[in-house]
Design a binder for these strands. Sequence first.
DNA 1: CCTACCGATCGGTAGG
DNA 2: CCTACCGATCGGTAGG
Lengths: 219, 219
Amino acid sequence: MQQLDGRRARGDESRRAVLARAVDIASVNGLEGLTIGRLAAEVSASKSGVAALFGTKEQLQLAAVETARGIFTASVIDPARIQPRGLRRVCALLRSWIDYSAGRVFEGGCFFFAVSAEFDSRPGVVHDAILRAVDERDAFLVSSIGHAVDQGELVGITDTPQLAFELTALIEASNSYSLLRRSAEPYEFARRGIVSRLQAYGADTTVLAKTGFMDPLPG
Amino acid sequence: MQQLDGRRARGDESRRAVLARAVDIASVNGLEGLTIGRLAAEVSASKSGVAALFGTKEQLQLAAVETARGIFTASVIDPARIQPRGLRRVCALLRSWIDYSAGRVFEGGCFFFAVSAEFDSRPGVVHDAILRAVDERDAFLVSSIGHAVDQGELVGITDTPQLAFELTALIEASNSYSLLRRSAEPYEFARRGIVSRLQAYGADTTVLAKTGFMDPLPG
DNA sequence: CCTACCGATCGGTAGG
DNA sequence: CCTACCGATCGGTAGG
């Protein structure tokens, strides 16, 4: 029993180590550019060893998406969830999202930006898994804004999904431009755009300032 | 001489036909997913025939970027350029840009969105060529906004690149979401966001209406 | 422009 | 988990 547990624990640990490298490779080279042979070499394992851990390349891709989802949740969603519902949570979410992109939690910037662009016009289970993860993220932003509206911290909003779309667009564009131009300046554009949008709906400047949105970002 | 011209014309025509297919494949599968063998099969040529036309895969990728740049210019920039400088040109540009994405001028949506995401964190001449094309596009938007400001058609703008960034972000996000969700609704989000931004700077509603920005997009 | 070929790498499997 | 192997495809070239 202890032997079995030991073996299972070793197997899980192998998977974890392989997937930790896999999501970084995929964020740079895409989920198609993530090859079993290269992945194996980088974690000093045999190709068939890695292949056996996942079965098929598609299952490796799905496991990578799931791993990335967990990392995104831990880096972006969880820091927002510990804030009280309302404007503070919205600001915390947007701030941790920018920091996650700017801090290169994944080597190639936001994992979901990279693989969404890669699979956006292809059918299949990998596309579907990416879409589910993105939908979950977007739903959290929409509901967070909804709480702020309910509490009267944002006024005059007639279309919450519209605002969520605009805020998401600013962050994704800053991720893309920062990577392409190797510059941190685009995050400053995103920050200013976010402040404009939120102030247009009467957001309390004190709350924005507390989340660091009123001052230029470092770097 | 007529024979030589005939041969040269045939060679140019071959290149054109191959590149026309290449940019569509790349918009869906990326410039790495664009393989010489598949491309040859799709245009009913031999692999070595296609290879000989370009020399190396990297040169094929560069030729594809250049071809896509020409198609983008013809589809998006030229229709704006025939409008007089000022707000009308800005609106025409944003409108033809959305139509180009929504109309799937490239099979996989905006070519430059797809390949920017693919090469954003990789070094090399292909990255550099993509960046130059994107920079040229962005510079045209910035200067178009600048004319509208100079003519007093947009007032209170303190940071033109900031506005250009926000408008670009809206269009690129609508391209991405439309492809990923197989829906035209994201373009409606982009349209509303653009109208909000321009109206905040006092844009004449009549001009916005003439460009079709005041009514929901068809489809 | 073609056929025919090169070595390398792809995803995947047999057998242990 | 490994070695050893499969057929297919990759980018590229020789020779015509």
